[in-house]
Design a binder for these strands. Structure first.
Length: 876
RNA sequence: GGGUGCUUAGCUCAGUUGGUUAGAGCGUCUCGUUUACACCGAGAAGGCCAGGGGUUCGAAUCCCUUAGCACCCACCA
């Protein structure tokens, strides 16, 4: 074995061997099903660190469960990411000198280009997932836009259409002028920008002023809304004013609406039904009351003013129109004030431009409509699955870790409005609806007969993502996979897609299958850079996980991503962390190297007999580790599990026991070696989910088969027989001597001469002299049967043996004395506080026994320590 | 405006239902070691757990409150 572990030399070969073994595929596994669907990365480029984190989490979980004997399935996949991908390709084309890709290439050609880009990007991504060591079943690879998944999309669309849950409606939606497409409310990113708030009058004879940041939209105002109880405007309610607003005649009715804040501005709000979601709602309310107000579109889908605005404004851009209106208001003296404010505006996540509210005919999913035959709305289904369980069945409850995200999920659902699912881009699932004159056809197959035209729009990408947990299992076919693995067992995702994705998966699954999509969701936080900034292209602080893997190895990266991180909280990523991971991997490698190269006969050891106190200690500690790790994994405490293993591996096993073992071997090599092999092999098993590559490589020294399948050692306590423990006394002496040396600040490098004196044990000690020398790194000066304490020495007692250590070689006496005095004070204080507690009746009567007991123990220890300190001070 | 999270060692963060001198990694300092590992070992320094109040025998942990930071949601026109 080489001195240092160099991951590059092993990882690819190991991954290939895993793939060839076939164990990524659950068809070759027995046991209870355990399924995880990989959140499909967008085919818009390459993986980033967030994906690396997700892959680490999923793979730790899957490998652990597989070793526990579960029939594990991790389905890998990618997402066609409709808008995101098309936007990316168009952006690239614009850069390459094609300013209007859609016009220039047309639907088919552009689609072909996007497809080519997506395929290339997909290839890169899948390679990257392999690089992380992810044990996904590649034979079940899925893609949201492949044939099987598209079939599921159509199936669901038609079902929803037939149930009346999908409908076509004309209403105000978010429109990206740049992208020439709608986007859903969730896809908006709110950005703060400075704006001007104009307070004005529509005309000189209009009775009150209103405020706006968008004067140009006021050309489409058809009402003025005030709060129903606002006394100032009572007398105007219901009246209609005809005004000439900067050259456009408007009819404005004064209406009442609860939503108007009477304290804001003048308490009166200009209503523009066509260009504001809120105003549109008021418009609908009025309509419902039978008091319809007009709806005038003044901004077109091209972002310019429509013919409705008359010759004066038609064709102007929004900005130009605004200037013109403001200029006109100023000129006519209608502008009361102009104020600089900070405004939060919704902009398109993908295209980046500020969206316009425009009334359009679009497809929607009705979330507040009762589902035929179910007596519930989609919204209710979505909520129920998380609160009490689907259909009130606690067995069908989605459990979210950490719990606090449930709350934000509920509040999101409460605010949820009908979901606009149609997009005017081309890259995506085409809406399965055809038109012929007045006829409308919605079906899984093309309609029969001539003259049908398919709806040109495509579906929101989250529509297909919502089906992911079951479309990946071959639904709508009633596949074996579907029966075996549904609902899926576990899911992990970042909190930023809780609403986008988790909510929609719950919606789709409960509606379509009458079943929850998964039992458990683990929410992780976002990775940020060293300064706490998000990783983003625009900041240029992105890190390619593959570069990190190439430099430090996948195991090191995996460990660095999960260590010191808690669920749902953001974590900072920096190279030093990966370095620490690399050191750990290397440590494990070197521990193995030491054991495997120094042991006579490398073989699996089924059971061991501890011979010494050290043996006993390390074995019981190891049992404890197995036990704790089982608990940690059950609670998804990956970080705690990893750190537990690290501490045992490094501090207990490597630094402590290995050193002891070196000495013990001089007396009983065979038995010590057995324990080393015993622990090492089992330790590899525990490590494997976290560091699959390095453990697998070391494992080859023990076994010929891969270690990735069933291993009872993951959870079973090691089998340890009752041992003879004949070295206990020697061990105790060694510990005592080491302690003594530490207490007196003797430099550990210097070999100190110790005198061990006793009656009965003298003979035995002489036999063990070599061992003690080695272990405690001391010289034994003499072993005597009568005890005369030598001049200038200190002593400690082990059982019925007294050990003297000469004080020669001690550091500065006065300084030591001062330190000891200080220490004595501290211990005395501590002791006093303990005594006080222990004499407190309230405490004794109310505290649990264990606590009182442990306190008594501590008191004893403290007293002992105090005595030692006093003894030391007296000597100095 | 509503909500959530965070504030713990120089830095990055753990701390499971309250349980008794508060932990890790990195960094710093001292000493040592080069036949498992300098990607090493033995030690040390460093914390009124953001401030204040309360509940309790006992609080980093529960409650109230103040401040700062971050994020999410919402129709301040």
């Amino acid at each position: 074995m080489p001195k240092a572990y160099e991951p590059q030399n092993y990882e690819d070969a190991i991954y290939s061997a895993w793939e060839e073994s076939g164990f990524f595929n659950p068809d070759h596994l027995e046991g209870e099903p355990f399924s995880v669907m990989m959140p499909p990365p967008n085919v818009t480029g390459v993986l980033h660190l967030g994906h690396a984190l997700e892959n680490s989490l999923m793979d730790i979980m899957i490998r652990y469960q597989r070793m526990c004997g579960k029939k594990t399935l991790l389905v890998p996949g990618t997402d066609h990411a409709a808008v995101a991908t098309q936007a990316r390709v168009e952006k690239n084309l614009v850069k390459e000198g094609h300013p209007h890709p859609r016009e220039e290439f047309g639907r088919e050609k552009l689609l072909e280009m996007i497809r080519a880009y997506a395929e290339q990007s997909k290839g890169t991504i899948l390679t990257q997932i392999r690089k992380m060591g992810t044990s996904a079943d590649w034979s079940r690879l899925a893609y949201t836009f492949d044939e099987a998944r598209s079939k599921a999309v159509t199936e669901v669309f038609v079902k929803m259409y037939q149930d009346g849950l999908i409908y076509r409606g004309h209403r105000v939606v978010n429109w990206s002028v740049k992208g020439q497409s709608t986007c859903s409310d969730d896809e908006l990113v709110y950005v703060d920008r400075p704006a001007k708030l104009y307070t004005f009058k529509y005309s000189s004879d209009f009775p009150f002023t209103i405020a706006t940041t968008r004067p140009e939209t006021k050309l489409g105002d058809t009402a003025v809304a005030v709060h129903p109880s606002d006394e100032r405007y009572q007398k105007y309610l219901g009246q209609t004013f005809e005004v000439n607003f900067c050259g456009v005649s408007l009819k404005l009715r004064v209406i009442a609406d609860e939503g108007v804040d009477p304290l804001f501005g003048t308490g009166a709000l200009g209503v523009t039904p066509a260009h504001s979601g809120v105003d549109f709602e008021m418009y609908e309310k009025q309509k419902a009351l039978g008091e319809e107000i007009a709806l005038i579109e003044v901004i077109g889908t091209d972002g310019h003013m429509t013919t409705q605005t008359g010759e004066r404004y038609e064709g102007l851009s929004v900005e130009e129109a605004r200037e013109k209106v403001v200029a006109c208001l100023k000129e006519q003296g209608l502008l009361v004030s102009e104020e600089e404010i900070e405004q939060s505006v919704g902009s398109s996540d993908r295209f980046g431009d500020v969206v316009e509210a425009i009334p359009l005919t679009q497809w929607f999913v009705a979330v507040n409509k009762e589902i035929p035959g179910r007596g519930k709305t989609l919204k209710e289904l979505m909520k129920e699955a998380v609160t009490v369980g689907h259909q009130g069945d606690p067995e069908k409850k989605v459990r979210i870790t950490p719990e606090r995200f449930e709350k934000s999920y509920y509040s999101w659902i409460d605010h949820l409005r009908d979901w606009c699912i149609s997009r005017q881009i081309w890259w995506g699932h085409r809406i399965p609806v055809w038109y012929r004159g007045e006829e409308v056809f919605c079906g899984k197959e093309n309609p029969e007969g001539d003259g049908w035209t398919q709806d040109p729009d495509t579906l929101d990408t989250w529509f297909s993502s919502g089906l992911w947990t079951f479309s990946t299992l071959g639904w709508p076919e009633q596949t074996n996979d579907f029966r075996t693995f549904y609902p899926t067992t576990w899911m992990q995702m970042g909190y930023e897609i809780l609403f986008f994705w988790m909510a929609r998966m719950i919606l789709m699954s409960t509606y379509v299958l009458d079943e929850i999509p998964f039992k458990d969701v683990y929410i992780h936080g976002m990775l940020r850079d060293k300064d706490g900034q998000k990783f983003s292209k625009s900041l240029g602080n992105g890190i390619d996980p593959i570069e990190v893997v190439n430099k430090y190895g996948a195991d090191a990266l995996r460990f660095s991503l999960i260590a010191g991180v808690s669920p749902g909280n953001d974590a900072k990523f920096y190279e030093e962390k990966v370095e620490a991971g690399q050191h750990l991997v290397n440590k494990l490698w070197n521990i193995s190297r030491f054991v495997l190269t120094s042991v006579e006969n490398v073989q699996a050891v089924a059971s061991v007999k501890p011979q010494t106190a050290a043996d006993q200690w390390i074995l019981s500690r190891f049992s404890e580790v197995v036990e704790k790790m089982t608990l940690n994994m059950k609670n998804y405490e990956f970080s705690a599990a990893g750190e537990l293993l690290r501490d045992f591996t490094w501090n207990d096993f490597a630094d402590w026991y290995l050193e002891i073992a070196k000495g013990q071997r001089q007396t009983d090599k065979e038995k010590t070696d057995a324990i080393l092999l015993f622990i090492l092999e089992r330790l590899l098993v525990l490590w494997h989910p976290f560091m699959p590559f390095v453990t697998e490589e070391i494992w080859k020294q023990f076994e010929t088969d891969t270690m990735m399948i069933i291993h009872p050692w993951v959870t079973d306590l090691p089998s340890v027989e009752e041992g003879e423990n004949k070295f206990t006394f020697v061990q105790d002496c060694i510990v005592a001597i080491r302690n003594l040396r530490a207490q007196y600040k003797v430099e550990p490098a210097k070999f100190i001469e110790a005198v061990i004196v006793h009656k009965d044990k003298a003979l035995f000690l002489r036999e063990q002299e070599a061992l003690i020398k080695q272990l405690a790194r001391i010289n034994i000066l003499k072993i005597e049967e009568s005890a005369e304490q030598p001049e200038g020495s200190v002593s400690t007692i082990v059982g019925d043996v007294k050990i003297f250590v000469p004080l020669a070689g001690l550091v500065d006496g006065e300084k030591e004395k001062a330190k000891l005095e200080k220490e004595r004070q501290e211990v005395e204080q501590y002791l006093a506080s303990l005594e006080q507690k222990l004499s407190n009746r309230d405490f004794l009567s109310k505290a649990p026994e264990q606590v009182v007991e442990s306190l008594k123990e501590k008191k004893k220890e403290a007293e002992k320590k105090l005595n030692t300190i006093i003894e030391q001070i007296n000597f100095l």
